[in-house]
Design a protein around this nucleic acid. Structure first.
Length: 483
RNA sequence: GUCUCCAUCGUCUAGAGGCCUAGGACACCGGGUUCUCAUCCCGGCAACAUGGGUUCGAAUCCCAUUGGAGAUGCCA
């Protein structure tokens, strides 16, 4: 029994789509759960799409997600290079081999002939306008020798059917005649994704090909290639697609128009990498239990291809948010405080020293770190508000009684020597007791006066402690001037 | 157009012939706790696409219909 080897083969586009990340996750999980190897290969065969530093984004994402690779451009495992552009010569050699055996042929048609009619439906029976497949091999070889621009196309049989077995979708049968003579080697000498994949997967000893189900219908073309080379066909694990819902309510493959779909975007929006990974693990796979929160390690232990689903899964931001909030709440306080700080402007404010107290207010109240700033903005600067905010039915607070009570409360507060939440609450409670009202009333009155918000994280004591005596009293004075 | 795949609450899913008057989670709606809010606790709403079979019995098997998605690139 040979060792399981899976690979993740992203193209360096500069950002990591969560769908790609999920593919990487499952490939990693499959390798780890079988004590196999996880290989990273960079698919940069499209020169036009080259993006600076894109490979670094891939490394950073994998690292941040915890998906460590065993082999890759930076970790030689003996089957490199792991970057396709550095393997360029190899592909030509293999493509020529196919031409020699008749499984492929040179095509001299102009790119533009085909591109002219962009939306034209491709007719598999007529792969190129020039019928290059029918050209005499010797004549074609001569033209190539003379430097005529060309591509190499795969010669697909016009009859028969291709049958293959997919780990999740089962047996798939496709008639060969609907397969087109796909291009293997481009005019620039670079291989196409499909061809490079087959060559590299074989050369790198990949045993399980984990990829999205959008490749299901082109898999026979891959297999025909493997057969032409007389190579062993790997085991396919096609994953259900991740879908997004647009404004009209239609679903389609998750893309930018559906919202933030890249890992790094999600992170900058305040999601924890662990939460993102946990969430996408459950998109298309089920542990077959009611459990939902898993660490990466636990996922590796629980992972089983039997739990892979066939139907597409809609990416649900609400559920991601919920999961993120679970992860945030589970964070040790110190860690929460240090991770949340950069999402606020507190560090550059007079309240910087009170950050821990502020963070304590936030910890159980945010779903993403991005929620932080908005929730504590009133501490940094009190918003404009009207006296009607003093109305609160339950505590029987009104602008009128607030105008009466607040000066008295202010007086007691001003006399306070120990300025902390407990002492402040105590003043408020005592005041209520002495005037014969429920504690809720002065609490509400005071909180509105110092915050200017109907809803705040924390109560009047906590808010005033953070604000400090001077600012708190000043805010009460400001409130008083409104009556 | 053609080919392929898919089909359980709004969403993610459990369910592999009787354990299903279909379970869990998110969202939503109530209630409780709380100095507002949040946390936390309790409860509720809500689905087997349709039609035929097969079977003593079907969400589970088969067929058709309908619906959805993907593929059909010198993109990956």
């Amino acid at each position: 029994m040979s060792e399981v080897r899976t690979r993740f083969a992203p193209s360096p586009t500069g950002f990591m789509h969560v769908g790609n990340l999920r593919t990487a996750l499952y490939a990693w999980l499959l390798a780890r759960s079988a004590s196999g190897k996880f290989i990273l290969r960079i698919e940069d065969t499209d020169q036009a799409r080259y993006v600076e530093n894109a490979v670094d984004v891939i490394y950073a994402t994998l690292k941040s997600a915890g998906l460590e690779h065993d082999e890759g451009p930076d970790k030689d495992g003996g089957v490199g290079p792991y970057i396709q552009s550095e393997r360029k010569g190899l592909y030509r050699q293999y493509a020529e081999q196919l031409v020699a055996s008749g499984a492929a042929y040179y095509c001299f048609c102009d790119k533009n002939d085909e591109a002219a009619d962009e939306n034209a439906v491709h007719d598999a029976a007529e792969p190129c306008p020039g019928h290059c497949g029918e050209l005499d091999a010797a004549v074609a070889a001569e033209r190539v020798k003379n430097g005529e621009p060309h591509v190499i196309r795969q010669r697909i049989p016009r009859d028969g059917v291709s049958v293959f077995n997919d780990t999740v979708f089962g047996e798939i049968t496709i008639e060969n005649k609907v397969l087109d003579d796909q291009i293997l080697l481009k005019r620039d000498g670079m291989p196409t994704y499909n061809f490079a994949n087959v060559v590299d997967d074989h050369l790198m000893g990949i045993t399980h090909v984990v990829r999205g189900s959008e490749y299901l219908s082109s898999t026979p073309k891959y297999n025909l290639l493997y057969q032409a080379f007389n190579w062993e066909i790997p085991q396919y694990v096609h994953l259900p697609l991740i879908m997004g819902r647009d404004a009209e309510g239609n679903v389609s493959k998750l893309s930018k128009r559906h919202g933030s779909v890249s890992f790094e975007n999600l992170v900058t929006e305040g999601y924890l990498p662990e939460a993102i990974v946990n969430y996408i693990a459950l998109l298309g796979w089920s542990p077959k239990s009611d459990r939902e929160i898993f660490t990466l390690k636990e996922l590796a232990e629980a992972f089983n291809v039997a739990g892979l689903n066939k139907s597409p899964a809609v990416f649900d931001y609400d559920k991601l948010k919920w999961m993120n909030s679970e992860y945030i709440k589970a964070l040790p306080f110190e860690e929460f405080a240090s991770k949340a700080l950069p999402f606020t402007t507190v560090a550059d404010s007079p309240l910087a020293d009170s950050w821990e107290k502020i963070a304590a207010l936030l910890h159980s109240r945010v779903e993403t770190f991005a929620d932080c700033q908005e929730k504590i903005a009133f501490l940094l600067e009190q918003p404009e508000y009207g006296v009607e905010l003093f109305n609160h039915k339950k505590s029987k607070s009104t602008p009128e009684n607030s105008a009466e009570d607040l000066p008295l409360i202010r007086e007691r507060l001003a006399a306070l020597e120990e300025w902390n939440a407990a002492a402040i609450s105590d003043v408020l409670s005592k005041f209520a007791e002495e005037t014969g009202v429920k504690a809720g009333r002065p609490m509400w009155q005071a909180r509105i006066a110092v915050s200017g918000c109907a809803v705040t994280p924390g109560g009047p004591g906590e808010i005033m402690e953070i604000l400090g005596k001077q600012v708190s009293l000043a805010r009460i004075d400001a409130a008083l001037s409104k009556f």
